[in-house]
């Protein structure tokens, strides 16, 4: 919904009957709670009230107009201004339906959305990952598989020979990003794992993970120095 009620309560003028008040903290009170017994309660009144609410929503959503995708994404609820719009809103009010019909319509993800993983690259195009195994260690879903190998580079001797993430197993918790000491793995690709026809297709290989940056228009390099900006470990940015 567009807005939520504020947390601060309005002071009530007529409250429940106070039986006792704490001497230590006057806010702590013992009050009499009056609850009608089940036999006294008629479900009919409540049923009528409830039906009224649902009926109102039903009618509004059935006969009303849907908001545009843009309005839905921005959470806007247009208020009629011109006379024509006002007249139209009587016949067919703008309804409350929040659904965005993926894939024809797409929601704009918030900036800090945790989505599909991507592997970062150094300035020379090498993958930033040094196969330190922190992410598979911390991963609660055991979805990351890394097989390390020695690189011929004397500065950063280790790199992943295999780096695979099973996106079906992934629980999108983001702990791998937290754990990474080299800013090599990120989940800021602003997209989600693609639907696949076969389970094996959901396993993102190293090449696929590197390609995610380009596919989603993200900068594949990082300004973080840990893990090295250039080919050499000791170079500072």
């Amino acid at each position: 919904m567009a807005s939520h009620a504020h947390d601060d309560h309005e002071p009530t003028t007529t409250g429940p009957k106070v039986l006792a008040t704490s001497t230590v903290s006057p806010k702590v009170r013992t009050i009499a709670v009056v609850r009608p017994s089940e036999q006294q309660v008629s479900y009919l009144a409540a049923t009528k009230a409830g039906l009224g609410i649902t009926l109102k929503h039903f009618a509004k959503n059935l006969f009303g107009r849907r908001r545009t995708v843009d309005q839905l994404n921005k959470g806007e609820h247009p208020v009629p201004t011109t006379a024509f719009q006002k007249a139209l809103s009587v016949v067919s009010p703008v309804n409350d339906i929040e659904t965005i019909q993926y894939p024809e319509e797409k929601a704009v993800y918030p900036e800090r959305f945790r989505g599909l993983h991507r592997l970062m690259q150094r300035d020379d195009g090498q993958v930033r990952c040094v196969a330190c195994m922190c992410c598979p260690t911390v991963c609660p879903a055991h979805c990351i598989t890394i097989i390390p190998e020695q690189s011929d580079d004397n500065g950063i001797e280790k790199r992943p020979a295999v780096f695979e993430i099973d996106e079906l197993r992934c629980v999108v918790c983001g702990l791998c990003v937290e754990a990474c000491p080299c800013d090599a793995i990120r989940m800021d690709s602003s997209t989600h794992a693609k639907p696949v026809e076969e389970r094996a297709d959901a396993v993102m290989t190293k090449e696929k993970l590197i390609a995610v940056s380009k596919e989603n228009g993200k900068n594949p390099t990082s300004i973080a120095t840990q893990g090295g900006v250039g080919p050499n470990w000791r170079e500072r940015g």
């Binding site: 929503h57 039903f58 309804n95 409350d96 339906i97």
Partner: peptide, 10 residues
């Protein structure tokens, strides 16, 4: 469909 309409869905 009706429940969706009652619950602001499609």
């Amino acid at each position: 469909r009706q429940s969706a309409m009652m619950q602001d869905r499609l």
